[in-house]
Each structure stands twice: as structure tokens, then as C-alpha cells.
Simulated scan of single mutants.
Amino acid sequence: MGHLLATVRQAPRLRQPRADSAGASPDLTDAAKTLGVSVTKLESALGGPPPDFEEAAKTLGLSVDELMAALPSDATTSQGS
């Protein structure tokens, strides 16, 4: 179990668009499950911020529409200044 914990702690964490002013990232767990990929793979494909939805869709073998339909709305809204 210690090895698993060490692996999780060492995994890079990519930031996604902020869900609120507190800086929380959107939860991509359900989207990843819907798309049949890991959260880490989904985060990596999205890149960013800002996320590149076209490139992510291509990387995951999906259409942009399929990707966007699976993502929570707070992950798909663009950040304004």
C-alpha cells in the first residue's frame, strides 16, 4: 500500500479551468468514466489551462462533440479576465 500511495503522490497534477473563485478544478471523474479513460489520461489530453478540446478529442479518439458532452459544464466554460 505504501508503494501505491507513493505513486499517487508522485503523479503530476495538471490544472484545469477554475470552477469557482476559490480555484477548485472541475471534477473529471464522471467524464473519464463515461469516456472509458482514466482521470489522469483525460487531464493530460486536455492540457492547459486553457484546455485544447480539439487536440484532446483527437488524442482520445473522439469527436469534440463527444468530449464536450462528457465534460462537466465548469470544465467547458472559458475563463474571462
Rank of each mutant, 00 (worst) to 15 (best):
E43I: 04
S21G: 13
A32K: 09
P50L: 05
A56S: 10
T7R: 09
T77H: 05
A75W: 08
S78H: 09
D27E: 11
P50E: 02
E43Q: 15
G47E: 09
Q10R: 14
T7C: 06
V39W: 01
T59Q: 14
L14P: 02
D65V: 13
G36F: 01
H3M: 08
G80M: 03
S38E: 02
A31K: 06
L71G: 12
D20I: 06
A11H: 11
G48I: 10
S78A: 09
G47V: 09
A70P: 00
G2W: 03
A69D: 12
V8T: 11
G2F: 11
L4Y: 04
A22S: 13
L67I: 06
L4M: 05
T40P: 01
E66W: 02
D27Y: 05
A56P: 01
D30R: 14
T77C: 00
P50R: 04
M1A: 12
T77M: 03
P12S: 12
M1F: 06
L62S: 04
V37D: 02
H3D: 12
L71S: 13
L67R: 00
K33N: 04
L5A: 15
T29L: 04
A45D: 06
G36R: 03
A32W: 04
K33Q: 12
A70M: 00
G23C: 02
G23A: 01
L28E: 12
L67N: 02
M68Q: 12
E54S: 15
R15V: 08
L62A: 10
L28K: 10
D27F: 05
E54W: 05
V8A: 14
E55V: 15
V64M: 07
E66P: 00
S81Y: 06
Q10Y: 03
V37K: 09
L71E: 05
A56M: 06
T7D: 14
T7H: 02
A75S: 08
D30Y: 00
T40L: 07
V8D: 06
P50I: 05
K33G: 03
L60A: 10
T77N: 02
S25F: 00
M68I: 15
R15Y: 03
A19P: 00
A69T: 13
S44F: 06
A6S: 06
V39F: 04
D20C: 12
G80N: 11
P12W: 07
T77G: 10
E43R: 15
K58R: 15
T76H: 03
K33A: 15
T29K: 00
P72W: 07
S21I: 01
R9H: 14
T34N: 05
R15L: 08
A24L: 11
A75N: 01
L71Y: 06
G23K: 02
A32Y: 01
P26A: 11
T29A: 11
S63K: 13
P49C: 01
L46I: 07
M68L: 15
D74K: 03
A57V: 03
L28D: 08
S44P: 03
A45C: 02
T77P: 01
R13H: 12
L4G: 05
L42Y: 05
T7S: 12
P12F: 07
V39Q: 09
G80F: 09
A57L: 08
V39L: 04
A57I: 13
G2R: 11
P51A: 15
S25T: 01
L60W: 08
S44H: 12
T7Y: 06
L14K: 11
A31S: 07
A11Q: 13
D30S: 15
T7A: 13
T76P: 04
L5D: 12
L28A: 14
M1V: 08
D52H: 11
T59N: 14
